[in-house]
Simulated assay, not measured.
Amino acid sequence: MLTSKQKRFLRAEAHHLDPIFQVGKGGISEAMLVQIKQAINVRELIKVRILDNCEFDKHEVAADLAEGTDTELVQLIGLTVVLYKQATKREHRRIELPKAK
């Protein structure tokens, strides 16, 4: 569980990122979840764009993405979802989170 200070730090880090996945009319598929898991293992922090033609509520989509990929939902702003998961191997970690009190 991320603290508010850590989420604020991650939001700042994600500001300059471009979305690398899009959720469209079909919603979230298993193949998409597998691809997002692979990307999150490499990058730790990603953005996902929910397209205007998506038939599902953006809050449900964001929650399903976080749950399906075993990541933390950092932010849902407009139709953009920011997801974070710390790399499992210490040598692959790129982002150093502020310490939780």
Rank of each mutant, 00 (worst) to 15 (best):
I20V: 12
R8Q: 05
V34T: 10
D52G: 01
V42K: 10
L33V: 07
K99S: 14
L79W: 00
L45Q: 00
E55K: 15
P98Y: 04
I50T: 00
K58L: 11
I36M: 02
P19L: 07
H59L: 14
A66G: 14
V74Q: 08
D52N: 03
V23I: 14
V42S: 15
D18R: 15
T71Q: 03
M32C: 14
T88K: 14
M1C: 05
C54E: 02
Q86S: 15
I46P: 02
L33C: 03
A12L: 07
H16K: 13
I50Y: 11
L83W: 00
F21A: 10
K101I: 10
G24A: 04
N41D: 13
E44M: 00
T3H: 02
K99V: 15
P19A: 07
N41M: 09
A66H: 04
N53K: 13
D70N: 14
E55P: 09
L10T: 03
H92C: 05
V34R: 09
R90S: 11
D70G: 13
R93S: 09
I95D: 10
I77C: 10
G27K: 04
K37N: 15
L17C: 07
D64V: 10
Q22A: 09
K58R: 09
E60Q: 11
A100T: 06
S4F: 09
G27N: 05
F21I: 03
P19I: 11
D64N: 07
K7W: 03
V34I: 14
I46D: 06
F21C: 07
L65S: 06
S4E: 15
L97W: 00
H15M: 12
E55Y: 12
E91H: 14
Q22E: 13
H15E: 13
E13L: 10
F21K: 08
F56S: 12
K47T: 11
D18N: 10
Y84C: 08
Y84G: 13
T71S: 14
E67F: 08
I46M: 01
F21G: 09
I95N: 07
Y84H: 05
L76E: 03
I40W: 01
H59S: 11
R90Y: 09
H92Q: 13
T88D: 12
G78P: 06
L2V: 05
E13Q: 13
V61Q: 00
R49C: 04
L83M: 05
F21S: 10
D52R: 13
G68H: 09
Q75D: 12
L73K: 13
I40M: 06
A100C: 04
A87F: 02
E60F: 14
I28L: 08
H16A: 12
S4T: 13
L33Y: 00
E13N: 08
T80D: 09
I50M: 03
